[in-house]
């Protein structure tokens, strides 16, 4: 059985857990407990370890989805999680510009050391006052070749679309047989 891995990252409350739940074929494994730090003002429960989901691709191949911890004190996990990943999805809460700086830090980390294929999922596009993907591109200073995709992490179709768009990026870099 071959396993491949995708990493879902983003700032606290960006929607990582929901994103994985929307697409995983197994009950998502999340270790959540009461927040005790700066996240407590944002959400009552926050991911302090990681989320894990799975999509089987036939009998011999399985795709694992790992959600990174949101809090800075778990940054050391990023490097571990990103080893051998197929690609990266960075979720951004489109309604909270106060998280854009942290989003950029996450992008910088993964692209500086892994240079992995990645896309940005502009989550919560169904909310009023959500910044559009075009506005997020300017706010995050992303080049035009970085895909920024509208997303509602609770809706499976948009989550599927984000995953597919990332796979198309990966496909462009893939090798012939």
């Amino acid at each position: 059985m071959q396993t491949v891995k995708m990493v879902i990252s983003g700032a606290v409350n960006a929607g990582k857990t929901q994103f994985i739940r929307a697409i995983s074929e197994i009950e998502v494994v999340s270790t959540e407990r009461k927040a005790t730090d700066d996240t407590k003002d944002i959400k009552k429960e926050t991911t302090v370890a990681m989320d894990f989901g799975r999509i089987s691709v036939g009998d011999d191949l399985v795709l694992h989805l790992f959600g990174t911890p949101g809090q800075k004190r778990f940054d050391f996990m990023w490097e571990i999680l990103s080893e051998g990943m197929l690609g990266l999805i960075v979720l951004v809460d489109s309604t909270r510009p106060e998280t854009f700086r942290e989003t950029n830090r996450i992008i910088d980390f993964f692209t500086a050391y892994r240079d992995a294929p990645y896309v940005i999922a502009a989550n919560k596009q169904d909310h009023e006052n959500a910044w559009s993907p075009d506005e997020l591109r300017l706010a995050l200073r992303l080049n035009s070749d970085v895909k920024i995709l509208p997303c509602v992490a609770t809706e499976r179709e948009t989550v599927k679309n984000v995953l597919l768009e990332l796979l198309y990026v990966i496909m462009q870099r893939s090798t012939e047989e």
């Binding site: 491949v4 990103s82 992008i107 597919l164 990966i170 893939s174």
Partner: peptide, 28 residues
């Protein structure tokens, strides 16, 4: 560039593998 170009660290996947995953996701 920041956009990245080569999937060096992860090991470059084979096209057939990526294609299989794409088909799986499409069918979900």
């Amino acid at each position: 560039t920041r956009a990245g170009a080569a999937a060096v660290a992860a090991g470059i996947p084979k096209r057939s593998l990526v294609s299989r995953i794409i088909n799986r996701i499409r069918g979900m």
